[in-house]
Simulated scan of single mutants.
Amino acid sequence: MNELDVLRVFCGPDGRHGNALGVVRDGRTYPDEASRQALAAELGFSETVFVDDPERGVVDIHTPGLRLPFAGHPLVGAAWLLDLEVVNPPAGEVWARHDGEFTWITARPEWAPPRRLQRYASAAEVDALPAPPPGDGWLYAWAWEDEAAGRVRARAFPRRDDGIVEDEATGAAALLLTAELGRALNITQGRGSQILTAPGPGATIEIGGRVRFARSAGFPQSAGFA
């Protein structure tokens, strides 16, 4: 049976939470898009990464419902797991660095899929939000916890076409919010995940977070595996 590495990406300061990520280290075992999409749907993670070239960092990213050219937490997780300085998703070359506690990637806002970024008056309002109806559109709800310090409270609600009601930590949405606000952010998302961001040279954005190894497991398994 093939092996799957499961990571938690964008963990909180206590090492808890973070968004679950499946990494198939040998992408050759699922050689075409249909088989990869089927496995991603079976596993049920918000994203699954297939590694096609571990030395050059060539990766392929799938949600349970579609293939993505770019996604934040899969690339941070892959860079950490494979100890890479460059990751190559379909969107383009993504530089990575590791500072001991955090793994960082540098990306461009135009690579991120569209998100509706909606500001609320307080973190309490964000905490109280119900999930939007299925198919209502991708919502990234946020509020300042401490504007002077750049601290943000956020929650992310996908369209739910692929069964994901709330995304625990979304680097792509954090990327777009950072580009919109034009400043470094310290984002607490979901149940307690932490995403750090900072504008970089040439309109790039750096995204960083903690990664923890959860487990290795055989697959395929049912969607309840996530």
Rank of each mutant, 00 (worst) to 15 (best):
V23S: 09
F70V: 13
G22W: 00
A40S: 15
H62F: 13
A34N: 10
R56C: 07
S35V: 08
L21Q: 07
L43M: 13
D53N: 13
V58N: 07
P31M: 11
G65H: 08
R56K: 15
Q37M: 07
R36W: 05
P69K: 15
G57Q: 07
G22Y: 00
I61A: 10
A20P: 15
H62E: 06
G44T: 01
H73C: 01
E42K: 06
G22M: 04
D53Y: 02
S35W: 04
V23R: 09
V59C: 07
A34W: 04
G57T: 06
L66K: 14
A20G: 15
V49D: 00
F45V: 02
S46N: 05
D26A: 08
E42M: 05
S35M: 10
F50K: 02
F70N: 14
A20N: 06
R67E: 11
G65F: 09
P69G: 10
G18K: 09
A71T: 03
D52C: 11
G65S: 14
D60F: 02
Q37R: 10
D53W: 02
S46W: 03
R28D: 14
P54K: 08
L39M: 12
V59K: 07
G57D: 07
S46V: 08
P54M: 08
D60P: 05
V23E: 09
L43G: 02
L68A: 15
I61T: 11
F70H: 14
P64D: 12
S35C: 13
E33M: 04
R36Y: 05
A40K: 12
E33I: 01
Q37F: 00
A38Y: 01
R56T: 07
G65C: 11
E55P: 06
D53M: 06
R36T: 09
S46D: 05
G72D: 05
G44A: 02
V59I: 15
N19P: 10
F45W: 06
A38G: 03
S35L: 12
L21C: 08
L68I: 15
E47N: 10
V49P: 00
V23C: 10
R56V: 02
L43Q: 06
G65V: 11
T29K: 09
G22N: 02
A38W: 04
E33T: 08
I61C: 11
G44N: 04
L43P: 04
E55M: 12
A41K: 03
S35R: 11
V24S: 03
E55I: 13
F70T: 13
F45K: 00
V23W: 12
P69N: 15
A38C: 06
G65M: 11
Q37H: 06
Y30D: 07
E42D: 14
G72N: 04
L39Q: 04
D26W: 01
P54V: 05
Y30G: 05
G44S: 03
P31F: 13
G57R: 04
H62N: 14
P74R: 01
H62R: 13
Q37P: 04
A38I: 00
V23N: 08
V49R: 00
L66G: 07
P54F: 06
A20H: 10
